[in-house]
């Protein structure tokens, strides 16, 4: 099973790249995904949840089960900081 992860902004400093494909064996939580792509990023996000936006197929995890939201085969995860822009 494959899931697609897109990492934006300064979070890329932790992952080194924007697009990541992850092979998973069974549905796993956002928390586990963060740890797999970068334990440091996982730590930052969990300690600064107000600074991050995590979407599963375009829907914020805060409207699902937060870091316990489970993702499945074919899901697209977007992980980005709460950026400024003006």
């Amino acid at each position: 099973m494959m899931i697609e992860v897109v990492v934006l902004g300064f979070f890329q400093d932790y992952t080194g790249r924007k697009n990541i494909e992850l092979e998973i064996e069974k549905p796993i939580t956002i928390r586990e995904i963060l740890k797999r792509i970068s334990p440091e990023l996982a730590e930052y996000i969990e300690s600064h949840p107000e600074n991050s936006i995590i979407l599963v197929n375009g829907v914020s995890i805060y409207n699902m089960k937060g870091f316990d939201t489970r993702v499945r085969d074919g899901d697209k995860i977007s992980i980005m900081p709460v950026v400024g822009g003006g």
Partner: peptide, 14 residues
């Protein structure tokens, strides 16, 4: 009110 980043986190649909 540059709300858009907060809105993405909170849920655009709400």
């Amino acid at each position: 009110a540059w709300i858009i980043a907060w809105e993405a986190q909170y849920g655009f649909e709400k």
